[in-house]
Design a protein around this nucleic acid. Sequence first.
DNA 1: TATTGTTATACTCTATAACTATA
DNA 2: TATAGTTATAGAGTATAACAATA
Lengths: 159, 159
Amino acid sequence: MTATLTDDLGWTLGVVFRAYIKAATAATAELPGGHRGFQVLTAAIEEPSNSQSALGQQLGIDRTVMTYLLDDMQKAGLIERKPCPTDRRTRHIIATDHGRGVLRECGHRLRLAESHILAGLPDTEQEVLKGLLQKLAVAINEFDPVASPCEVIQDIAAS
Amino acid sequence: MTATLTDDLGWTLGVVFRAYIKAATAATAELPGGHRGFQVLTAAIEEPSNSQSALGQQLGIDRTVMTYLLDDMQKAGLIERKPCPTDRRTRHIIATDHGRGVLRECGHRLRLAESHILAGLPDTEQEVLKGLLQKLAVAINEFDPVASPCEVIQDIAAS
DNA sequence: TATTGTTATACTCTATAACTATA
DNA sequence: TATAGTTATAGAGTATAACAATA
């Protein structure tokens, strides 16, 4: 019997997620795309042979939205689109030196924002929570990567 | 040095949250407002003297959006708006018997959806994660309730 | 025939502003 | 003067559909 709001995973996730978005948006205000621009930049550095659609899949961003986002990031000099040598349809997303610099600055502010959000838990529990979220996210991402929030499917329709 | 995507709290929260939204939307398809309708119903039963704006504050829903959502839920016979006897401006949101029944059914499906999402973790870790999320959400909600995702503020602007 | 990326368009969701009625 | 709720409108964000280029 759940019945109470605080026991609802949707409520707890929602509260934490909204708090994160609020803090992260402030911390990444100088980046096009805000916290998502930050994630694109991070992924671009981690794996420079990422295509646009691969990036979108990983980050939960539609490929059409990715086009606009990367346009803005390219105009800001944060990334480059480099043609893939083996498949002329795809472009690899590469972070520029400027992009790496901005990422470092924003990364610092974002870590402050994270600790602000997690301040309601003692340090040891913060680490446990982050570890479990990471483990779960990796599992979900491997098993069933959700492309975007609006990709609503009629799973679990059986009672 | 974060640098990797899987270490980023924004990424892990995003993946888990999107997976939740996807599953919860399917599980609550019969409710107006989907998973948020579910939360409204839950909160209405838990505390029947909730006003519309109190509900919105608690659930991260703007008061203007709350009006539309409650309109739909009222039309569906799930809740009633009862005038507050001591303040004629406010209405208390009360779940109907029908609302209670629907909540039970949806609650069952939602619990299945939750366990589907958390399946990437062993049972004991699932409980730890849920407990920590709850503790953190309660702390955030008490200290700094975020009314809505778009309430972007320039906190943390200091380096 | 399927896929990558782009563009234009349409749609959904949410917030802003203005209003009524209460306090 | 401030607040609860409503309504209309505007805005941001997102997805759909159609297209060109390539596989």
